[in-house]
C-alpha cells in the first residue's frame, strides 16, 4: 500500500525586492518525508518562526506550488490539481485547522452555517435534514452536539469549543489528512488537552492522519508518532518522536529541547524556599 502523503525533495523559493535587486529567499529547502505509510499517524513538524513550517503546510494544502520537487497525495501530484472538480475532490481529502479559532470563523455568521455549507458541498447533503444529520454526527465525534452549536455566534463560545467546532467542520468531508497549524497555541490551558486528546482519537477511531505543526515540544512528545525538526527551511532531524525528543542529536534540536521550561524544575532547585 502506498503512502498517503509523499513529500519528495521539495523546495519553495520566494523572490523579494524589485526587478534588478531581487533577492531569493529559500523558505523550504529540500524537504522529504512520508506520512501515513500503511497506517494513520500523527506527524509533527517542529520549528520556530521563520523555519518554513507554515510554508510547508501551505504546499500540502495546495495553496502554494513547490518551486522544485513533488508532493504526492495517494500517488497523485498535488500540483496537478487543476479545475473545480479536481480541486473539490482534493479538498475533501485534505482539510486544514488553523491557529486562531476566533479568526477562522466570521464573527457575523452563525457557526452551524459553516457546518451546513460544508455538508452540502462535501457531504453530498441534499436536504436540510441531511445537513443537520451530518453536522450533528461530526459534532458528536468531537464531544459536542448540534443542539449546543445551533444558532450560536463565534463570540458566544470559548476558544476550546470553537476549535472543536473547527475540527468537526473538517471531519464532515471525511478527510484522510488534516493539516493543523499550531492548533492549540491560542487555546486555554485547561482546555488544551481536550483538543490534543481529540487528535489522538481522530487517528485511532477514524483513521485520519494528522500533520501537527507546532513549536511546543511537550505536546509534540505527547501525541506524535514521528516528527521532523526544521531550521531555516531545512530538516535538521527526523525520526520516531519519542526517540528524537528523548535524545536529540542535532545541536539545534538539543537547543530547542533545553529551552523547554519544565515545571518540574520548580520542585528541585528553585526559589526562596530552597535557600537554607
Amino acid at each position: 500500500m502506498s503512502a498517503l502523503l509523499t513529500v519528495d525533495g521539495v523546495f519553495k523559493t520566494f523572490a523579494r525586492g524589485g526587478l534588478f535587486s531581487a533577492r531569493r529567499v529559500d523558505a523550504v529547502k529540500d524537504v522529504s518525508f512520508v506520512v501515513g505509510d500503511g497506517r494513520p499517524e500523527i506527524f509533527t513538524v517542529i520549528g520556530e518562526s521563520g523555519s518554513g513550517k507554515s510554508t510547508l503546510a501551505r504546499m500540502i494544502l495546495g495553496i502554494h506550488a513547490p518551486s522544485r520537487g513533488r508532493l504526492l497525495l495517494d500517488g497523485m501530484d498535488i500540483a496537478s490539481v487543476r479545475g473545480g472538480a479536481a480541486r473539490h475532490a482534493f479538498m475533501a481529502k485534505v482539510q486544514p485547522i488553523f491557529q486562531n479559532p476566533f479568526e477562522a470563523f466570521n464573527p457575523l455568521k452563525r457557526l452551524d452555517h459553516y457546518l451546513f455549507m460544508t455538508a452540502r458541498r462535501f457531504g453530498n447533503a441534499a436536504t436540510v435534514r441531511e445537513e443537520e444529520e451530518q453536522a450533528d454526527k461530526a459534532l458528536r465525534q468531537v464531544g459536542l452536539s448540534l443542539a449546543e452549536a445551533r444558532g450560536r455566534f463565534p463570540h458566544e463560545l470559548s476558544g476550546g469549543q470553537l476549535q472543536r467546532i473547527a475540527i468537526a467542520r473538517a471531519l464532515i468531508s471525511k478527510p484522510r489528512l488534516i493539516v493543523a497549524d499550531e492548533p492549540v497555541s491560542m487555546v486555554d490551558a485547561s482546555l488544551r488537552m481536550a483538543i490534543v486528546n481529540q487528535f489522538k482519537a481522530l487517528r485511532d477511531d477514524l483513521g485520519i492522519s494528522i500533520i501537527y505543526i507546532t513549536h511546543d515540544l511537550a505536546t509534540a512528545y505527547y501525541i506524535s508518532d514521528r516528527l521532523i525538526i526544521m531550521q531555516k527551511g531545512e530538516v535538521v532531524e527526523a525520526g520516531d518522536a519519542r526517540a528524537v525528543l528523548a535524545a536529540p542529536r542535532h545541536p539545534y534540536s538539543r537547543q530547542l529541547r533545553d529551552a523547554v521550561l519544565l515545571p518540574d524544575v520548580a520542585g528541585t532547585a528553585h526559589g526562596p524556599v530552597s535557600a537554607p
Binding site: 485547561s190 482546555l191 488544551r192 488537552m193 481536550a194 490534543v196 486528546n197 515540544l217 511537550a218 505536546t219 512528545y221 505527547y222 519519542r242 525528543l245 528523548a246 529541547r257 523547554v260 519544565l262 515545571p263 518540574d264
Partner: peptide, 11 residues
C-alpha cells in the same frame, strides 16, 4: 505534558 512521560492527560 512532559517529555518522557507517556501517561494520558485529562482535560
Amino acid at each position: 505534558p512532559r517529555i518522557g512521560d507517556d501517561t494520558p492527560r485529562q482535560a
